[in-house]
Nucleic acid binder design. Structure first.
Lengths: 211, 211, 211, 211
DNA sequence: CATGAATGAGGGTTCATTCAT
DNA sequence: AATGAATGAACCCTCATTCAT
């Protein structure tokens, strides 16, 4: 229990965490490649080098991995966006530039978007899953809504619709574009999203509060 | 094929066509409700009132029904856009109004959107299907791009991006929103789409070339 | 459709019935040997020479075969007993003799009794199964109750308890004895059952209705 | 194992015994409720508040718990009968009354009966278990046979069959009735058993040998 | 053309058991 | 002694598809 040998410590918990991590990784790869429905637990376990039982020792069901994956992804995305908008002193142009950089990364995220679509479809069809999914989704929607609101505030303008609705619309746009451009290169998604964002801002009235 | 008995002549071919049509209809309903992967051929045949064998007498595989649906999709979309496109001399406000009407129908067209998403998802995973799907999609994209271009031209403004790209983006937005709001009432999709469209117009520079 | 070739006719329905019959037979053998819980559908299908799918083409579930089996057995048993009691003119001694003969066959029926016990256990634990089981069981209980009533009537005596209850008690005795004597030879079950029946008759008061 | 610290001395052994006892108790509850086959070791361990490993530290297999339960069964039955047997000089009415009391407890003893049935069922399929079970059963049968013999002797009558066989038959009747009336209220088992007993006595000839 | 019984592969899930900790 | 992650086999069931009728 004290530390003397530097290697092979924490075996029990460590190896458990490792198994879990490997299963999650493998699941993500396969979900992205073959879709949620096209991926069997056998596939995941086999490719990760474990038995099917190992999967069930770590997750109650296929849905659970999916939710874990989703949560992680959405939180990461939220954090990423918050970082851009939270820095108070930024000039509008700077914010735009950073958003542009972020939007560019979306191009590499098309796989994730595909999964998101499959997830939504699954949620629309499985009531039990829908509840859990809704929680994750609402949290994400709220976070993004906050980011959108902050952006308009920073620009001294009134959003042309409820910020959360706008955020959801941007998610919809992003996912829809990902669906279209699977495999198409170069993917104009990131650029288009900013075009729409600029449009929204251009059409927004000046905020009544003097900046 | 030659005519001798005056009654019930086309019976065989007709009834075959009817079988086929019923199977296609049923398949679409089920694909929308349960997804492509969640729909079995037994489901389709049973609900349509036929045997599984009848299905295979009309289609080589589940994918083939999807192709037939794609064909229907294509025709429906073509007809829809023709209405907007055919009105050559329309004033900008009129075009805008027609787009608004079109956007409003989207609310009631969620089924078609879902079907479209299923089609795209499947195309992303089946190379043989992808080719055929791409052709339909490109045609539709082109047509819709024409409408967008015409709108901006009529307004005397320069589109902030390739009209076809903008058209595709609107399709993406529409589909993405439909996915989000399956079952949610009231569905803000139509309104949001117009908010985005207005934004785009607001951010468009005045066209330099009068033409 | 008319009969000319003596062999291989009725192929479709016949072969279907054959498959069903073979599966039922095999299921019975295995249920008796390994118990209901110890018999898998794989086992049944494999041993009958079919695929698992073939099983599901003929039965909705393992429970369904069980019920079919049970029904057939109970009906046969009821018919057997009715035959003994229905012949009006028999003298009491003759009835007894025939019952003795019948009881002797019970010895060879121990396997069936075992299954019956497992069935009851299963019914006590599966509400969905319980309903269907209850119907079969009640019918059998009613039939046997009728036989018991008739026997006492023929002897001009009043049964010491509700005939249906007595019938159920005899079923219980039979099953309980079968449970005990699995494998023990010679099995005294049949003889003991008659000993109890004679006791019941001996303790029964004379019926008030003069015969 | 040697004593030095006065407190918590037997702690280890004691706690092990406690673990074992708790597992046995839990197992019995679950066997009765869900059956032997319907109870998993995980169920037992979980519900008892231990790990699966703890189970295997105490028992080599699921069957071994069953053996332990059998031992308990044996002791309980032995004690039960001792009460009846020990009263040597009792009058027939008294014995009869005691049997009546015993029969009445059976109504509330359905759990034991179910357990007994599970034991017998398992014995019928596991040769290794059967041997041990047979010993317990034979002892019990002998003891109960003694009671039956004594009853008839006290009544000055000849039993209509080997007392041990009659005893076994009563056990069979009891178990069979318990199986039928699991959950059914009111349970006529106790009453029915006495009806049968009275019948047996009624049909018994007067003992020729005074002895 | 239409039937639907039968196939064979694969789906998600559970279980008794093992073993490094 | 006790843990519980991991195993591997088995379980019930569903599916797209075939083929004799």
């Amino acid at each position: 229990m004290n530390e003397s040998t530097p290697r092979k410590r924490l075996s029990r918990e460590e190896s458990q965490a490792q198994t879990r991590a490997r299963l999650i990784d493998t699941a993500q790869q396969l979900f992205v490649t073959n879709g949620y429905g096209g991926t069997s637990i056998r596939d995941i376990a086999d490719r990760a080098g474990y038995s099917q039982g190992a999967f069930y020792s770590n997750f109650a069901s296929k849905e659970e991995v999916l939710l874990e994956l989703l949560r992680g992804h959405m939180e990461a995305e939220g954090a990423q966006l918050s970082k851009i908008l939270d820095s108070e002193g930024h000039a509008p142009e700077q914010i735009f530039e950073e958003l542009q950089t972020w939007a560019a990364t979306l191009n590499h995220d098309a796989d994730w978007c595909m999964m998101s679509i499959e997830l939504q479809l699954h949620a629309n069809r499985s009531p039990t899953f829908a509840t859990k999914y809704q929680a994750v989704w609402d949290a994400h929607r709220g976070r993004l809504g906050g980011v959108v609101g902050k952006l308009f505030a920073a620009l001294g303008r009134t959003p042309p619709a409820d910020p959360e609705e706008l955020a959801a619309a941007f998610m919809a746009l992003t996912h829809g574009l990902a669906l279209q451009s699977m495999g198409a290169r170069p993917d104009p998604s990131g650029r288009l999203i900013l075009v729409f964002l600029r449009g929204l801002i251009a059409s927004a009235g000046l905020a009544s509060v003097t900046r």
